[in-house]
């Protein structure tokens, strides 16, 4: 009997590994293909370039991973990014010191996220609905706040966030790496992370073992809002301009990275390693399309085909 229970288990683990390697295999295959097609692809400067480009989506996707892990969804990330960006840029132009403006911007993002979470928990609304509302509301507020115009020309201290290279590492990459590392530790090394997995697996059981599921849900949305704000600040610093129209459809890229990374949409299974690979695949793909100068008319077909293929490879394992 112990034998009989042992074996499906090992086969599951085997699948689990295959699934985890599946996305890695897709990524490596994509990189090999691009190296063969372009001698410009496999260079240090292009590597740094790709990493820098995925920071915005990557940071948002970290929050989205948390949200999807507990079985929720956050559609408002792009709008929250836009609103926090324009508010922060406006504060900067009004002479608020950089650290204070950054704190206020991220705080605003967290507040918006907390509103998402609070409404979802308090009124038992599906997060799909709540964050869809926030998607529209935050966008509207960003447009109202700026009257539709971008805010351009920001202080150097702030632009350091996008252009700075302490210790030779570009700031965006440094920040994203810190975010990933901290988020990974929280998810895999603390009870909070284990609670989130438990909530995603079985919210009823999670409550029955004493987890304050409501508080954790609000916390996760707060985190997602804060990370969207941080991503927005990096984007703003890189562009030297905050745009009320920034971040449209960013939620789709973030969700794509998370799902491509193997996190299950129903929650409870997955993690940040996969999300990082998912974001990398999307970034490398965009980079490759530009390097190879693929006609814009075919671009979306190529992109869709590669993503579908990658998903196929590692979803086969399930």
């Amino acid at each position: 009997m112990s034998q009989a229970t042992a074996v499906p288990g090992t086969s599951w683990n085997f699948r689990d590994y295959l699934q985890r390697f599946g996305i890695l295999i897709s990524f490596v295959l994509l990189c090999i293909a691009l190296s063969l097609l372009s001698d410009r692809f496999l260079t240090v400067s292009n590597g740094v370039n790709v990493l820098r480009q995925i920071t915005v989506n990557g940071i948002i996707a970290v929050g989205m991973t948390y949200v999807i892990l507990i079985g929720d969804i956050d559609l408002s990330v792009g709008s929250v990014l836009a609103l926090t960006s324009v508010v922060t840029a406006d504060l900067l132009q009004k002479g608020v010191p950089v650290p204070a403006a950054l704190g206020l911007g991220i705080g605003l993002g967290m507040a918006l996220g907390a509103v998402n979470g609070w409404i979802t928990v308090r009124f038992q609304v599906p997060s799909f609905i709540t964050t869809l509302g926030m998607l529209t509301a935050a966008r509207g507020m960003a447009l109202t706040y700026t009257q539709g115009r971008p805010i351009t020309g920001l202080p150097d201290g702030f632009r350091f966030l996008g252009r700075g290279e302490p210790l030779g590492i570009p700031m965006p990459i440094l920040l994203a790496a810190l975010v990933f590392a901290a988020a990974w530790v929280m998810l895999r090394r603390t009870r909070h992370g284990e609670y989130l997995y438990a909530m995603g697996n079985n919210p009823v059981a999670a409550r029955l073992v004493g987890i304050h599921t409501g508080r954790y849900r609000v916390l996760v949305f707060t985190l997602s809002g804060g990370l969207s704000a941080l991503a927005g600040l990096i984007l703003t610093a890189r562009l030297d301009s905050a745009q009320p129209t920034a971040g449209v459809a960013f939620e789709l890229d973030a969700i794509a990275a998370v799902v491509l990374g193997g996190t299950r949409f129903t929650g409870g299974v997955g993690g940040l390693g996969g999300t990082l690979l998912g974001a990398l695949i999307i970034g490398v793909l965009d980079n490759g399309i530009n390097l190879l100068n693929i006609s814009p008319l075919y671009e979306q077909i190529v992109k869709g085909a590669v993503i579908a293929l990658a998903l196929l490879i590692h979803r086969r394992a399930e």
């Binding site: 372009s38 410009r40 260079t43 400067s45 292009n46 370039n49 820098r52 480009q53 965009d286 980079n287 530009n290 390097l291 100068n293």
Partner: peptide, 8 residues
């Protein structure tokens, strides 16, 4: 996109 083109 232009970052990528600069690489290429």
């Amino acid at each position: 996109v232009f970052e990528n083109i600069l690489q290429a």
